[in-house]
Write a protein that binds this DNA or RNA. Structure first.
Lengths: 345, 345
DNA sequence: TGAGAAAATGTACGCGTGTACATAAAGCGT
DNA sequence: ACGCTTTATGTACACGCGTACATTTTCTCA
């Protein structure tokens, strides 16, 4: 070496240990002249840590995953935090056939910590997660909770978000509020249902199962729901959809029947996605801090990977109602049934 | 070992070399019993390759990156291909202050190949890329070309896409077509301008610089452009926007002046993003196969990383016009100026 | 059945760090 | 100036795999 050592170089490059200021300078200078860069792989190898944060993405057939607003936002948040911590972000795609073996990722040491997106509360998934948990490998779930578990979880307050959304409709005078929900193996969906019921109960309105429709969070499923909702147009004066995409599909479907959201019927969505700002009318929705949730999850899990903290952290971030025009004007007393039915065809 | 060897295990696990079928079985069985997993880091170390494909993301201040439709789609395509090749996907975020040193990524061996998104044709970036190129490190640009370079590039035929879009407007009878473009350091923008000019020339229409407006591909910039376009409403009967986001912002802005796209003025966007399907009226736009572009780029670069192919590959994928309603009905002869002006305020 | 080729397995070492430990240098108090 | 503590540096080895080469086993064919 141009300098005078070997292990000292390591100390200089990794910033560990004590090194005299002058030696440090000499080493760095030599490194520059030799165009030397420490090899990241060898570093990982010696340290026994990859320096990667893995993000496990769900398998969603036929859908280009990142186009889903919430994944994109969460991932951006994770990316931000990962940079702060000096980790790298490894994207791990879950395949449909692949057995649900998360431990594999840690065993092979590809990632020191993981964030799991789009998890569902089904037995096999619970089992796989519990296995991870028992080996105290740092991981965190985002936007999904497993009741009774000790998993790290970052979620938003969807019960309150939904409550506010439905409450908003009630405040505007709507009395017969349908609910377009998603699959119940997402805690998300269960939470929204709970918020919906709570708002109804508080207002002394009956909960009617016929007014709860089931979609799958896709725009298409919202579009398809419009048929059933239109069929019950005499009983329904407002719809709360569990996400924006379904709300948008619903509005499009209803429009084809001549029913205009915000005018003949009130519609509220959920997520405050980009799409909600560009529909006509703009969608009243619930803002969810996905970006912040991603940051929080990454923060938790990276802190644990660095051995800074115990596990079982549960964060619930606040949501907030965003009132736009799809929820219509304030109306007095009972909603106008004639209007809700839309123009005659 | 439960079996009888050591290097043989390596041969079994890595699938290299000849191993008798029975031995293989014994080894795998022992591995299962011992709960053994080969260490990915050590493998990378020994092989001298990380097994990662790096995707370099541009720094976009104040924007949550993944929400941009085209990044998301490209990334999904890359993800697909990466799975096929058995690589991992490493996300690399470019910081604003950071010097444009791509070689660093290869030197440190974090990735065996890279895909660079959102590159711009500015001197420093060209220099950094040329440096990469000279060291024959496999990388590929997506949706951006550098004229006269030997870089791998995957792009879509934006000249033709724009040509078709403008041609469509001309075919519908519009004669005074404004163009809302983005920054010219994106080859994207230059291509669109070229296609725009070509279509005008072919129809014998004059190219007027006053009808070319400059945005930055954000919805906001489209919204802001509406002011200027409205000001020239007497000369303009149609607008071709260089992407959907600007087109959407523009439509929203015009709407506030009472000018409705597809009715008082024709609007065509570009990208065929999710948003284009949910606006009212739905946006006529140009479909770009971003997903396929991502796949193609990953294919090229991974093949090169595996030493299968020479560099300098240039792919141009086809685009296609998607006619919806924002480009209005077919009109005869000169567009109706009164209508284009919108209702009186 | 035996020689030679082909297949299967074992041996030994390197890959480039980090780090425990040993050692040398520097500082400090009397 | 001497012993002691503190700081700085050198030495040696491990980390877990891949692989070139040596060696053994199996197969082929006369």
């Amino acid at each position: 070496m141009a300098g005078v050592s070997e292990a000292t170089v390591s100390r200089v490059m990794s910033g560990s240990g004590l090194v005299k200021e002058e030696t440090k300078r000499r080493v760095l200078q030599a490194a520059k002249r030799l165009n030397y860069y420490p090899n990241a792989i060898a570093r990982s190898f010696a340290r026994g840590r990859s320096g990667n944060l893995g993000v496990i993405l769900p398998f969603v057939p036929k859908v280009h995953l990142f186009s889903t607003y919430y994944f994109s936002e969460i991932l951006s948040g994770i990316g931000k935090k990962v940079q702060e911590y000096g980790y790298n972000l490894l994207l791990l795609f879950r395949s449909p056939e692949e057995t649900m073996d998360f431990t594999h990722i840690y065993r092979t040491q590809k990632a020191d910590a993981c964030i799991i997106l789009g998890a569902r509360d089904v037995p096999e998934e619970r089992r796989a997660l519990r296995e991870l948990s028992e080996q105290s490998l740092p991981f965190c779930l985002v936007n999904q909770r497993f009741s009774g578990s000790e998993f790290n979880e970052v979620d938003a307050d969807h019960v309150h978000g939904s409550y506010e959304a439905v409450r908003h409709l009630i405040d505007r005078g709507y009395r017969s509020i349908a609910f377009l929900n998603g699959p119940l193996h997402y805690s998300n969906s269960a939470d929204r249902l709970q918020g919906y019921k709570k708002a109804l109960a508080e207002a002394g309105l009956p909960y009617a199962e016929e007014l709860v429709f089931m979609g799958n969070y896709s725009r298409k499923s919202g579009y398809e729901a419009s048929r059933f909702i239109y069929a019950r147009r005499n009983e329904i004066d407002a719809v709360f959809a569990a996400n924006d995409r379904m709300a948008i599909g619903l509005m499009q479907g209803l429009r084809e029947y001549g029913v205009r959201a915000g005018e003949h019927i009130a519609v509220v969505g959920y997520d405050d996605s980009d799409g909600s700002k560009i529909t006509d009318p703009p969608l009243t929705t619930v803002h969810v801090p996905f970006y912040e949730m991603g940051m929080a999850a990454a923060g938790i899990v990276l802190a644990q990977a660095d051995g800074e903290q115990a596990s079982g952290v549960k964060h619930v971030l606040p949501t907030s109602l965003v009132v736009r025009e799809s929820s219509g004007p304030r109306i007095n007393g009972r909603a106008d049934r004639t209007a809700a039915a839309g123009p005659e065809r």
